[in-house]
C-alpha cells in the first residue's frame, strides 16, 4: 500500500512510499530512519499524534519532524 511520508529531517522531502500492510508507526520509523530514536522526532499520522503501535493505512500521511535542529552562524 502507498502512504505519503513527509520527512523534515535532512533534505526535508515529501513523497509517496510503499509499505507492507500491517506496518506499525514504530516499524515504519525504524525502516525509514535507521539509527535514529523516535523520541527525537514529532511523529504525526494524518496530522495527529499517534501511538507507536498504530497500524498504518492506505493513503495515510506520516510526518517526522526532529524535535531539535541545530541552527548555525552561517546557513548551510
Amino acid at each position: 500500500m502507498r502512504i505519503l511520508f513527509v520527512n523534515n529531517d535532512g533534505g526535508g522531502f515529501a513523497d509517496y512510499v510503499e509499505v507492507a500492510p500491517g506496518t506499525t508507526v514504530e516499524k515504519f520509523f525504524c525502516e525509514k530512519m535507521p539509527g535514529r530514536s523516535a523520541s527525537d522526532f514529532l511523529l504525526r499520522v494524518n496530522r495527529q499524534p499517534v501511538a507507536r503501535d498504530q497500524v498504518l493505512q492506505e493513503g495515510d500521511r506520516v510526518t517526522a519532524t526532529p524535535v531539535k535542529i541545530e541552527g548555525a552562524h552561517r546557513a548551510a
Binding site: 513527509v6 523534515n8 529531517d9 535532512g10 533534505g11 526535508g12 522531502f13 515529501a14 535542529i69 541545530e70 541552527g71 548555525a72 552562524h73 552561517r74 546557513a75 548551510a76
Partner: peptide
Amino acid sequence: LCEGEASAPIRAALAEGR
C-alpha cells in the same frame, strides 16, 4: 534565523506549502 541544518527542510516546506 541562521537556519543551519534546518535550511533544506524549511525551503522544502515553504515550496510545497507545508
